[in-house]
Design a protein around this nucleic acid. Structure first.
Lengths: 332, 332
DNA sequence: ATGAAAGCGCTAACAT
DNA sequence: ATGTTAGCGCTTTCAT
């Protein structure tokens, strides 16, 4: 700063005012400062700025699984908004590990992030509350965290599952398997509720043996569905609770040389690029992941600007995209 | 710090020494300090630390496309190493936009990152050089940047493509299409070289009209391959230069009701979870993306520890995984 | 509207 | 081995 100040023949304070956009400076001087800064190729040191002004321009992104294209899309949406607001993104990818989540949250705290967009693991760590109290803006994503009382952006997984299962029911299926995440996961619970409700509304019972709670992993889904295909009264359709689970179920189906949708119909959560390239193409529950990211980012910005605002919630709708795997249409 | 120092009845310097692990302190005192810190729930302010010690513990990750699962896997590998070395990751995802890359690099510079793992767009921005001169450790990933003279971790895309194409050639195919990225991309160039070499080694000519350079996008691949399937002497096989391109080609093939591998055989770059769930399962060129990430992170750590070390390069091998789409085996 | 000066929370250098 | 002190590069009072 000093060099710039010297070159522009002003004080460091003025330089700061010009470059950070705070305070009022005569256009004439401002120009001189900018020119000097350019001439010296001066880049303000953000660390020093953060220290002095007691606040960074860093937002932490806390997510369980970045290899899930869904989260990748969300991140892209977040960037759309936050980068143009001159924030940068600190990635806290905890790889489905609660311990790791804990450690990462502590680091984020130390780094003094201005805000956090987070998808907590099963039960949100108490650290979230601590961060909130420390004045860090929080927005919960995809998984609700009502106990924290923070802004949230979620997905109507219940309705989505309901739509998918009802669609299968409407197609005449009476034994519909549900390959779902762990019972401890709120996401999985939602899916289960939708599944149950669809049966109830149709006046049909749900068969407990057709519901499987497993890890959100392809391999687990593969094994679970293998087993399910071996039971006496094999299901005639399956609803899978996420993209990875769909892939696992698919593996099991192929291995048994079953034909989709003739032998078994399939509807899965999450639409992804490969869903249309599969044969048959996949009937899925789709939603605007990127849009959700944008929304969360926007909320965070507003929260930072107005910390006292009462918490806001927004639920994104899902959409049933009927393709071939459910058997409702013949064109693959 | 002061409060901790007061509670432990030592100086702030001692507190710093204990908590940052530098300097020597009597165990007795160290314990007292740690206890005091815990009691006060004290978290050192990393911003202040960075300012004073002239160096952050932040590493920038510069990548073109986070929605590509390949990059997501690389990031996971990077985390494996860097998080345990107490670094955090600043995500600079430039979404295939050169302008965005530029802006992000500037931000990273201002944030004072200690190092950078980057996959540059076509021609590496001069900012990389600037960063290197400013003492930031650089490791190039996936795309070479020989002009920068920095450490690099790359992939033998040439050999991989060679293997894939030779495999198809060996199966008797003589008209093999190549769906490739833009000619300006070094990745695409490599693929092309492998493709050409395989033909040369087999004493076969390459038909220029079978080679298509397009954007790394599913939609582009779809249209390109649609066109390719309409030409007079239709190709009997196709090699796709990346996962997204494979998906696009698949779409075109399905649309024309062609059967794989009978009507058209397919081998593609990148192995992904869905490759085995497709029918027929995909023959692919595979490689250890996560391992590449680890390697890059390791290199960066070494570079930071020893800035003067001559640049190191490491090329990861690829592996041809023969499944069903190439027609070499009957079991799907 | 501008400048002078203080100080953000730490750690490094120096002194003991 | 520990304490004292200065200062990292900026922004923000407080004067003027």
């Amino acid at each position: 700063v000093k060099e710039v100040a010297a070159l522009a023949r002003v004080s460091t304070a003025t330089v700061s005012r010009v470059l950070s956009g705070n305070g009022i400076v005569r256009d004439e001087l401002a120009l001189k400062v900018q020119e000097a800064a350019r001439k010296l190729n001066y880049k303000p040191n953000r660390v020093a700025r953060s220290l002095r002004s007691r606040g960074t321009r860093i937002i932490g992104i806390v997510i369980p699984d970045i290899e899930n294209p869904y989260f990748a899309a969300v991140i892209t949406g977040i960037e759309d908004i936050l980068l143009s607001a001159d924030y940068c993104l600190l990635l806290a990818h905890y790889q489905d590990s609660v311990d790791r989540e804990q450690v990462l949250l502590e680091t984020l705290h130390c780094e003094g992030v201005a805000g956090l967009i987070f998808t907590p693991s099963t039960k949100p760590s108490p650290l979230y509350r601590e961060l909130a109290q420390a004045g860090v803006g929080l927005v919960a994503l995809a998984r609700e965290a009502p106990e924290l009382g923070v802004d949230s952006v979620s997905l109507s997984g219940r309705q989505g599952t309901y739509d998918g299962v009802r669609h299968l029911l409407g197609l005449g299926h009476r034994r519909i398997a549900l390959i779902n995440g762990p019972a401890t996961s709120s996401t999985a619970t939602e899916r289960y509720e939708g599944y149950t409700k669809a049966h109830q509304d149709a006046g049909l019972p749900v068969a407990a043996e057709l519901v499987r709670n497993i890890e959100w992993k392809q391999e687990s889904a593969y094994r679970a569905f293998q087993a399910l295909l071996d039971i006496e009264q094999r299901p005639t359709a399956v609803f899978t609770g996420s993209n990875l689970l769909t892939l696992g179920a698919l593996q099991a189906i192929h291995e048994k040389r079953l034909e989709i949708p003739k032998d078994i119909a399939l509807v899965g959560f999450d639409d992804l690029p490969w869903a249309i390239s599969l044969r048959p193409s996949l009937t899925v529950i789709s939603y605007e992941a990127r849009e959700m990211g944008r929304c969360a980012a926007q909320m965070l910005l507003e929260r930072i600007a107005k910390p006292s605002r009462p918490p806001v919630h927004r639920e994104f709708p899902t959409k049933l995209i009927v393709r071939a795997s459910c058997g409702a249409q013949w064109d693959w």
